[in-house]
Design a protein around this nucleic acid. Structure first.
Lengths: 205, 205
DNA sequence: CTACAAATTGCCTGTTGTGCAATAATTCTC
DNA sequence: GAGAATTATTGCACAACAGGCAATTTGTAG
């Protein structure tokens, strides 16, 4: 079903994750300007040249660490229990719900706070979000065995990810499950927002 | 209605556009790797330091040149003749239609072709598209005088721009007005695609 | 006209990107 | 399982880049 991973590919991905994680950790406790690529590779024990083989800059590494599935298994977990012929919209809704883990929220929160202080991050956040989108898209394509056209899937997934983007790029303030919704004045509940999105998409605007 | 521009601001924007345009031109006839920041500032007759004051790298300049309104007037032209109490969805549809000029198509086409050869561009394309989105959003917010919540506008505009994104980041092949739709095997008509988007958003998926 | 604010510039230095060639690790073929 | 082919990692070297600082020019305000 899924692409099989050669040992070589697994190792390559592992070094990528190691580098990205190191970058993310450094960013969290020193800020984006508080460290260099050399610091990253020193922490992850790789060469600077290798870092450049995986990422174009530290911003890309940081965003990737926060918004990437670490394994195909992690991506497949989004599927959970879905019957083969669930409608496309329901499948996507299901996957979005499965994505809402405490870990995901925590990383998102950190990422947004970093990007607020340093807008250089934003392009790479959008780019990482796009990779998440493509994962979802690919899963849906496989799962729906030709019931929907490529164009249709692109369109729907694009609309959903476009609508949640403001939560990730910092244009909207989010409140998370643990927090009371009225704590921050203008903050929006992540889960309610997603529900709203799907309500509109289901019934039209 | 719109924010008035001091002479100083106008001049600053002008140098920004001059630099961005120079970068875009160079990218078109030498490719993204075929020139340096020095080449850009030499062509636009500014200092390298000034370039850094406006853009973080040449990719950002290139994407900005292709996907930015050069003046507030150009942005306001999108409004055209719209009555004050047009429904939000209709206003947005109208604006998307107004955006479809030959010039816009041409720039988009060039941008996509550049990003295909050099994926480094992609994050900055997404970022530039986000700026376009924000312009649209701001216009709609002003134009709809509190008839819709901030959240609602964010959501709708996000969905639309998310859905058209594949046309700009190169994940879908586009055919343009001049070309026959069946010329390229898998190519999609830009205008038909947008119409499809709005059909779905109107009536639900 | 004068004082103020902001944009542009040059200079400088630490940081970064990348081609090339060498090495080490994995995969393939027989 | 041994040797050949592929690919990831690394070091080196050098051009390109980012950003702080201070000086200068140019627009703004009173």
């Amino acid at each position: 079903m899924m692409s099989k991973q050669s040992l070589r590919e697994l190792k390559k991905e592992a070094t990528g994750h190691a580098l990205a994680d190191a970058a993310f950790e450094l960013a969290i406790d020193r800020g984006l300007d508080g460290f260099t690529v050399d610091d990253i590779v020193q922490r992850a024990v790789y060469s600077r040249r290798t870092f450049a083989n995986h990422f174009s800059c530290k911003e890309e590494a940081v965003a990737t660490a926060a918004l990437t599935f670490k394994s195909t298994k992690e991506a497949e977990d989004l599927i959970g229990d879905m019957s083969e012929n669930t409608p496309l919209l329901d499948m996507l809704y299901h996957m979005m719900k499965m994505q809402m883990t405490a870990d995901h929220f925590w990383k998102m929160r950190k990422l947004v706070s970093l990007s607020r202080r340093n807008p250089t991050l934003v392009p790479y956040i959008l780019s990482a979000l796009q990779r998440l989108k493509k994962s979802a898209q690919q899963i849906l394509t496989e799962l729906s065995h030709g019931r929907y056209s490529n164009e249709h899937i692109h369109l729907l997934v694009g609309a959903v990810y476009g609508a949640i983007q403001p939560l990730y790029d910092g244009s909207l303030d989010v409140s998370l499950p643990g927090e009371s919704a009225s704590e921050t004045s203008e903050a929006i509940s992540y889960e309610q927002y997603v529900d709203t999105i799907f309500n509109y998409l289901r019934n039209g605007f």
